[in-house]
Design a protein around this nucleic acid. Sequence first.
DNA 1: TCTCACCCTCAGACTTTTCTCAGTTTTTCC
DNA 2: GGAAAAACTGAGAAAAGTCTGAGGGTGAGA
Lengths: 241, 241
Amino acid sequence: MKKIVLIEDDADLLALLKYNLEKEGFTLVGAQTGRGAVELCRRERPDLILLDVMLPDSDGLDICKGIRVHPELAHIPVIFLTARASETDRIVGLELGANDYIVKPFFIRELVARIKIQFRGQTTASRVLKAATLELDRTSCRVRLNGSALSLTATEFRLLEFLMSRPGVVFSREQLLDAVWGHDRAVTDRTVDVYILRLRQKIESDPASPIMIRSVRGFGYSFNEALQTSEEVDRSAFAAQ
Amino acid sequence: MKKIVLIEDDADLLALLKYNLEKEGFTLVGAQTGRGAVELCRRERPDLILLDVMLPDSDGLDICKGIRVHPELAHIPVIFLTARASETDRIVGLELGANDYIVKPFFIRELVARIKIQFRGQTTASRVLKAATLELDRTSCRVRLNGSALSLTATEFRLLEFLMSRPGVVFSREQLLDAVWGHDRAVTDRTVDVYILRLRQKIESDPASPIMIRSVRGFGYSFNEALQTSEEVDRSAFAAQ
DNA sequence: TCTCACCCTCAGACTTTTCTCAGTTTTTCC
DNA sequence: GGAAAAACTGAGAAAAGTCTGAGGGTGAGA
């Protein structure tokens, strides 16, 4: 689950946000003071930071600056909570400022939406399908197994991509030909067997007893859904919303 | 200056936004219909897209999806303009959704702030492209290899610039023709081969076994992302947020 | 205006890799 | 045990990539 650090001096608002965001499935770590906020983040390594601009003991912008100068924290998105719209210029104007901001009072759903936008960019940018130690990168057309590159032909790649993008779903040879070879194909469905074989020889540790690509006798083939990594499960649950 | 494409069916609002954003120093290209919006973006190559969700002839989300599937447009940030807060779930929930959204009615300064957030972080990313000992300067249109100047033709330069600006991404010949030669081209895709060849002869130490420009059989060509300098990697990791 | 140099584009030869099928062996299920 | 489905093999056909040379166009300078 995604972890969020929340710095907000108003105890009531802190509790309210904590309650609602945890209900949304986020892990929350709260603090009421700006002092030690950077250290808190270094300790917790959150996926996102929610930061009140006006804190009694320090300026939220200074905290943000402190976060940005730490190489291990610099990439973490920061969303500011601000009381006045007039402050937005200050927040946005800074070179290493906010990734987003939200003006109080706000609806929880509004905040949740903005948090999700920050998390989404990370997933869309990668465009990588993962299953156990197998990684398929759609933009660079590369496949890696246990971290080392695998050389697939174009058809092998497209077939694997199709199967991996819908783990657990069983496709008939007919459907695979349609999806991978195209509708105007003039290819025997035995050809699919050959490609499944080639793929297995390349990606399965023991091609004789395949784990990744499952044969479903009488129906077709499917990619083993049990091999999804936890983040992949997260993501698809996330997308389902 | 940054160029923005704005799709908004309300003529008054379109004019108002155009006026105010141009006053802020942006270059604006407006359209009142969703039809042809993707083509408009391909032609204009904006730095940001403002998109009304509700258009009379099409759904803003469909347009966004159309933008995201084009590799040469996929990285462009999209901000949605929406009439109702209740629509935000739809906008945010989609896998290929918005980078931000703003609910009507809004203050211009609010919109400007959100636009600037999108641009921040990209600022440094453009002047000079580097990969190993190869340097491409976009402003002076010069290319240097191992410190010594290289003489490229205009087309060679544009092709190299395009490939280097998105290292690791595989582009088909079709996409390269679109991006480098333009949409109204009347050129065989074999021509791309010739230019790849010429480039390799100029930039590769051993053109027979190219390192910089990778052939991806069955898909196209890509610039080797492993040649990115470390600062470049940092930056793109940052931009991915 | 003419000439020359340079650039763009294409056709086609050549090379390498991939695709596909036919046929054989193995496995699975009734 | 037998039939059907899947797994596997090798080889010819097809496709994709590389590379060359020539024709045509354009712009700069004589």
